[in-house]
Structures are given as C-alpha cells and as structure tokens.
Design a protein around this nucleic acid. Structure first.
Length: 317
DNA sequence: CGTGTCC
DNA sequence: TCCTCTGGCGCAAGACACG
DNA sequence: TGCGCCCGAGGAC
C-alpha cells in the first residue's frame, strides 16, 4: 500500500510541507476518508481472544463498532466526514492483489495449525493476516452511515483516487488517511493520524502537496515519476534506488525515460517489461466520478433507526 | 498509564 | 571513508472506561 | 502487513 518512504522523504527534504496540529483545527472541515481501509483496520484491531466481536447470531460487529465511535468523535469535533468505498481495482494492481490473496491463504493454513495446537498467540497473529473486507462489511457500514446522516461515495476504482478527486473538485478540504498515495493522486491536502491523536500521543500531521513540490523543487509530473521510483502498488521499482537517489535522478533528468537513458543498467537493473508508463497514467488520469455525480449532504442522524439497527439487529447495548 | 471490555 | 540502500527483527495495527 | 530501528554490504566520492 502507498508509496514507499514518501512520508520520510517529505519529512527530510521538504519539512515545510508538514504542519502539525490538533483535531480542533479541523472544526467545520469536510474530510474524505477511505472506508475500505478503515474497515480493514477495524477488523484487524478490534478483537477479543483472537476473534472479531460478534453479535448473538455470530455476525461480525468489529467494523461497525470502530466506524460508529470514530465517526461520532469526528462529528463531535465538528468534522464532516465523507466515506469513500473501493470499486473494482485497476488491472495493473492484479499482481499485487494475487500476492495478498496468496498470503491470506497461507495465513489461513497457519491459523488452523495454531488452533489445532492450541496456540492462542499464534492463532491471533495469523487470524489478523486472514482479514479481508467483504461486501457485507461494506454494506453494513453504508447502512450505518446512512442512519448517522453521513454521506458516502462509491468509487469506480481506487478509493484514494476518488478521495483525491473530491479535494480537487473542491468538495472537501482534504483526505484523512495514512496512505501517502493520496498525494500522488493529486490531493493537495492529506491529513494523517486524524483520529488517533487524542488517544495516542501522536500529533495530527497535515501534508501539503503544493508545499511538498516547492520543497522538493519539482513539479507534479516529476512527482508522479518520483513516486513510481520510490515504489507503488502498480509496478516494480529499481533495486538500489531509494529516496535519495530517486529524488536526485528526478531533479537531474526530470522523467523516467531520461533517467533510463542515463543510468548504468548494470548497476541498476530495470525490471522486465516495466509498467511505469501505465502506472503513471493511473496516477495522472484515474477513473473517478465527475463532480456532478456526487452530492455530499450531512444530515441529522436517524436515532430511532440507529437504535433499531445497532441494538436490535446487531446486538449493541 | 496499563488493563480489560465492547459484541 | 561516507552515503545509501537492503534486510533483519520486533511490534502494533480501535476506542473507551476504569482504577 | 507496514513501519521504525539498527546494522552490514556495496557503490559513491
């Protein structure tokens, strides 16, 4: 996920792009959030004895618990969240997704083994690795959000791309995410640690794309190529080229084509059939909804409906 | 601040 | 020698209330 | 799984 070491590179090379603050600074602000990513985190973190929380019927409730409290906290602080759900992943990501499926299958086997051996600790560890966000999880959360009066958007493909689009379209102030590729998709404002600032001792960090570009001394096209060199989900990167060399090369040659013409390919092996051009296209013109296709409205919660859903259906108290 | 509980 | 990347390891990934 | 941290192996200078 994300762009390898991009946060570190910005912190080192363009520190002025990062602003630290607290939740109160976001009062009245609209923030786009990757719903599927949040749900994934909740499913991994909200556990008891190695298993997700469930209601009496055995349905998982960890994701509802997490999303409910987190959303309430944001609203209490005057933040207007809009959740963005993942659509179909782009073709270019299929290799990465295959890898993830393989790892899950492997973890599934290890989990069974640990259960048979009565090793609770190992069971817990591998159970977390088998987590997959399902259609049902998403639908549950959409229902919850509707009842809470919080809008959501179904992205055509990548949620982060759609979040960035909402920023570019002026519909929200920024993207609330840990995933730095929101910047690569062109979101001017990215907010990290938005929700866990008060519980943990981690300040909210706001990244400005404009200031990052200024600090790094490159333009947005060059930034896209830089991100590909650093390592993204869509293609391999060149072994031996990390944050420093990547930035130096971009500053010197301005794009990947020129870099390829100038580097010693014996020292830096370029991946076979390197799909950097397609990756670049995905970042540059991702599939997103046009501005008039999303209507973001925050309304009063349906309290009776919430009680009925959460308490009666899902077993909350 | 660590620990247990939520479902 | 210095710099930079790599690869190893350990850890925690939510939110809250309570003592 | 990803991240921060530390260390060693190379090239870079």
């Amino acid at each position: 996920m994300g762009i390898h070491n991009l946060a570190k590179l910005i912190a080192d090379q363009a520190p002025a792009a990062i602003k630290e603050g607290e939740m109160a600074n976001y009062f009245g602000r609209k923030i786009a959030i990757d719903a599927s990513m949040s749900i994934y985190q909740f499913l991994i973190a909200v556990r008891q004895n190695g298993e997700n929380l469930t209601n009496d019927s055995g349905e998982t409730t960890s994701h509802l618990m997490g999303m409910f409290y987190r959303t309430i906290r944001m609203i209490e602080n005057g933040i207007k969240p809009v959740y963005v759900f993942d659509g179909k992943p782009p073709q270019l990501k299929s290799k990465e997704l295959e890898k993830r499926l393989e790892r899950r299958t492997e973890a599934e086997a290890e989990k069974t083994k640990a259960a048979d051996a009565g090793d609770g600790e190992a069971f817990d560890k591998f159970a977390r690795r088998t987590v997959k966000v399902t259609r049902e999880h998403n639908d549950d959360c959409k229902r919850l959000l509707t009842l809470m009066g919080v809008p959501y958007v179904d992205a055509p493909t990548e949620a982060e791309a759609q979040c960035a689009a909402l920023v570019k379209q002026g519909k929200v102030y920024g993207v609330g995410t840990e995933d730095m590729d929101a910047l690569t998709f062109g979101a001017d404002v990215l907010v990290r640690h938005l929700t866990f600032s008060e519980t943990r001792k981690m300040p909210i960090r706001e990244y400005s794309l404009t200031k990052a570009l200024q600090g790094l001394g490159i333009n947005f096209e060059e930034f896209t190529d830089l991100c590909i060199l650093l390592g993204c989900d869509y293609c391999d990167s060149i072994k031996g080229i990390g944050q420093k060399r990547a930035l130096d090369l971009i500053k010197q040659h301005r794009n990947i084509e020129t870099i390829l013409k100038n580097i010693d390919k014996k020292k830096y092996a370029v991946p076979d059939d390197w799909a950097y051009e397609q990756a670049r296209q995905l970042f540059k013109v991702p599939e997103i909804l046009p501005a008039d296709a999303t209507d973001l409205k925050w309304t009063e919660p349906d309290e009776d409906g919430l009680v009925s859903y959460m308490v009666k259906e899902k077993g909350f108290s």
